[in-house]
């Protein structure tokens, strides 16, 4: 029996006495491609942080490949929203990616680490920029570098926080092309507030607004979305982008 990539059982989390997540039950199987969709402030980033072991839930159980989140860090890759750090930082592309290979204190990066980091850069087609300082890259290129950094960990579960937010529509397509190549190597979890662009690429959609409302194949997700957005929605299907509009 193979382990599920992620299992959450009755997970609740509150911050400053404000309930952020409530009784989340959620399973992601190996090599699933799941989008977690919900409005801003719906707890999406919190959920990711719990899976990453950065936050501990008030109650409930989280297992990443059968382990505690903090003990499964070597299996998890993370693509943060790239706007959260200083682009003017003195670091080049290769060094950034190499950080994904960190093993612990007093442990030098080996030549194998360097090869893996280089391969990760090849995977995202950014190899030729490896000596470039990160502020001299475009938004889409930076995102590729950050994907490479996550891939350099050789994860079995890749978590992506709002990967669409910072790139233009053209880049979004190439992002999905890139991600679809990763599908047979790892489980992918993508968090987004943008329903339309997501739904035509992923296998399953979960909807999160404090509670997790639905979890299943993308085509059937419409009803769940209506509940969390409190608005009606055309049915979502492959190949048709959608917009969520409030009923007037």
């Amino acid at each position: 029996m193979s382990l599920n990539a992620l299992e959450m059982k009755d997970v609740s989390f509150s911050y400053n006495h404000q309930q952020v997540l409530e009784d989340i039950n959620f399973i992601i199987e190996e090599k699933d491609f799941v989008a977690i969709i919900g409005p801003n402030g719906g707890g999406k980033s919190t959920l990711l942080k719990i899976v990453l072991g950065l936050l501990t839930p008030d109650k409930g159980e989280v297992k990443v490949f059968g382990r505690e989140p903090k003990k499964a860090l070597d299996l998890v890759g993370y693509l943060p929203q790239y706007t959260h750090f200083d682009l003017d930082f003195p670091i080049d592309v290769f060094e950034t990616v190499l950080m994904g290979r960190y093993h612990g204190m007093f442990k030098n990066y080996t030549s194998e680490d360097r090869e893996i980091a280089l391969q990760a850069l090849k995977d995202v087609d950014m190899e030729r920029y490896k000596d470039r300082q990160i502020s001299r890259l475009s938004g889409g290129q930076i995102q590729r570098v950050l994907i490479a950094r996550a891939l350099a960990r050789e994860p079995k579960l890749l978590l992506m926080d709002e990967p669409m937010a910072s790139i233009d529509p053209e880049m979004q397509n190439s992002f999905y092309r890139l991600i679809s190549h990763l599908k047979d190597r790892m489980a992918l979890v993508l968090v987004s507030h943008d329903v339309g662009t997501v739904s035509m690429h992923v296998d399953k959609i979960a909807c999160l607004n404090q509670k997790l409302y639905y979890h299943g194949p993308a085509e059937e997700a419409g009803e769940g979305l209506e509940k969390i957005y409190h608005c009606s929605l055309d049915h979502i299907s492959h190949g048709i982008p959608h917009r969520v509009l409030r009923k007037h």
Partner: peptide, 16 residues
């Protein structure tokens, strides 16, 4: 370098 550049990611790769 890790904590200066991206503290959150540092934690995620197990850096204390």
């Amino acid at each position: 370098l890790g904590v200066s550049f991206d503290e959150e990611f540092s934690k995620v790769v197990g850096l204390p």
